[in-house]
C-alpha cells in the first residue's frame, strides 16, 4: 500500500501529499484531545454528566449548569488547548530555526521577557490577575526581548548560535530582575507573581480566550507556510542557499511567528516552560518526514499536554487548584532529559 495519500486539484496545479502515518497519529491525537476536553468539562467539584455538557454546548438555558460548564470550565479548556498548541509550535519553529533541539521560547528568553513585564505590573500593584493590562504588558515584554536579541546580534546576518546565546544572556539578566522585584515587594504580591510565573489557568475567562485566539488565527497559518522552509533549512545554510531558499526573508518571519505565538500564550497562561521544548521532540518520535506534518502533530501534542496538566492540577488535589505549570514541568523535564540522552546514541 502506498504510504502516502496524494490529493490533486483537477488541473494538477496543486497537490497535497499526506503520509498515512501522520494522518493516523493526528487523528488519534485529535480523538484523545476531544476525550480529555470532554472529561475536563464534565469533572470537577460539581460533576456534570456528559449529556448535560452536550446540552449546554448546544445552548441549553439551565442557568446553573451553563455557569459552571459554559463560563468556568469551557474557557479554561479552550485556553489550555490554544496556549499549549501555540507554545508547542513556537518551540518547533525555534528549534528548526537555530537547528538545535534544545532551543525553545523559555530557553532563549522570550518567556522571561514576558514574565519580567508581567511581574513588574503585578508587584507594582498596577494590576491583579485577570486584568487586561497584564497580557498586554507580557506580550510587549516578549516582543521587546525579541527586538533586543535582533539588535544585539545584528539582525538577519546573525548565526543561529549567536541568536541563542544572546537570548540565554538576556534570559538570565531578566531572571535576576524578576528575583529583584519579588524580593523587594511584599509577601502577598510576591506570592501572587510567583503563581503567575509558574503558569496557571486558574480563573480563565472568555476574555482570555478572545485575546489569544486572533494571534493563533494569524500566526499558525504563517507557521504552516514556513514549515516547508524548515525542511530546507535543516540541510544547513550553504545547502539551503544553494537550493534557492530565501533564508534572510524567512528567518525574521519565523522568529516573529515564534515570538507572537509564545508571547501571546504566556501572556494569558503565565510563564509555562517545557511545552515548547518537549512537544516538538514527541512529535519527532511520532511522525516521520517533513516539518509540515510535524508542526500539526506538535500543535495537538502541546494542547494535549497542557490540558492534561491543568486537569491533574485542578482535580488531583481538590479542593486546592495547583498551577498546571508544576505538572508540565514534572512530566516534561524528565522526558526531555531522557530524550536528550537517547539522541546521543
Amino acid at each position: 500500500m502506498n504510504p502516502s495519500l496524494i490529493l490533486r486539484s483537477g488541473d494538477d496545479r496543486l497537490s497535497l501529499k499526506i503520509p498515512r502515518r501522520t494522518l493516523g497519529v493526528v487523528c488519534i491525537l485529535a480523538g484523545l484531545l476531544i476525550g480529555c476536553a470532554a472529561a475536563s468539562l464534565s469533572l470537577g467539584s460539581h460533576p456534570t454528566s456528559l449529556g448535560d455538557v452536550a446540552s449546554v454546548l448546544a445552548g441549553s438555558d439551565d442557568s446553573g449548569l451553563s455557569l459552571i460548564v459554559g463560563e468556568i470550565r469551557l474557557p479554561r479548556v479552550l485556553l489550555a488547548i490554544l496556549a499549549g498548541a501555540a507554545l508547542g509550535v513556537a518551540g518547533l519553529l525555534l528549534q528548526g530555526l537555530v537547528r538545535n533541539p534544545l532551543a525553545s521560547p523559555d530557553v532563549i528568553g522570550i518567556t522571561s521577557g514576558a514574565s519580567a513585564a508581567a511581574v513588574a505590573v503585578l508587584t507594582l500593584d498596577l494590576a491583579v490577575r485577570g486584568d487586561a493590562l497584564l497580557p498586554l504588558a507580557a506580550i510587549t515584554g516578549a516582543f521587546a526581548v525579541a527586538l533586543v536579541i535582533l539588535a544585539l546580534t545584528g539582525g538577519h546576518r546573525a548565526s543561529p548560535g549567536q541568536l541563542v546565546l544572546v537570548g540565554v544572556g538576556l534570559a538570565s539578566a531578566l531572571g535576576a530582575l524578576i528575583t529583584f522585584m519579588l524580593v523587594l515587594s511584599g509577601d502577598a504580591s510576591a506570592m501572587n507573581a510567583y503563581l503567575w510565573l509558574t503558569g496557571s489557568l486558574y480563573a480563565a475567562q472568555w476574555g482570555d480566550v478572545i485575546r489569544l485566539a486572533p494571534w493563533l488565527a494569524i500566526f499558525l497559518p504563517v507557521a504552516l507556510v514556513c514549515a516547508r522552509q524548515l525542511d530546507v533549512l535543516a540541510l544547513g545554510d550553504p545547502m539551503a542557499t544553494g537550493l534557492g531558499a530565501p533564508l534572510s526573508g524567512y528567518r525574521p518571519l519565523m522568529l516573529l511567528s515564534a515570538v507572537a505565538l509564545a508571547g501571546s500564550a504566556v501572556s494569558v497562561a503565565g510563564g509555562l516552560s517545557f511545552i515548547g521544548l518537549v512537544a516538538p521532540h514527541m512529535a519527532r518520535n511520532l511522525v516521520r518526514g517533513g516539518h509540515t506534518g510535524r508542526l500539526v502533530t506538535t500543535a495537538f501534542l502541546g494542547a494535549l499536554i497542557l490540558l492534561c496538566a491543568d486537569m491533574v492540577g485542578r482535580l488531583g488535589f481538590a479542593p486546592r487548584d495547583l498551577p498546571a505549570g508544576v505538572f508540565v514541568a514534572a512530566v516534561g523535564a524528565p522526558y526531555f532529559v531522557y530524550q536528550m540522552y537517547r539522541l546521543k546514541r
Binding site: 534544545l102 509558574t198 516552560s273 517545557f274 505549570g325 508544576v326 514541568a329 514534572a330 526531555f336
Partner: peptide, 13 residues
C-alpha cells in the same frame, strides 16, 4: 540552560 530551567521549575513547583 535547559538543566537550570529544569531545576528551577521543580523548585518553583
Amino acid at each position: 540552560v535547559a538543566v537550570t530551567a529544569l531545576f528551577i521549575a521543580v523548585a518553583q513547583g
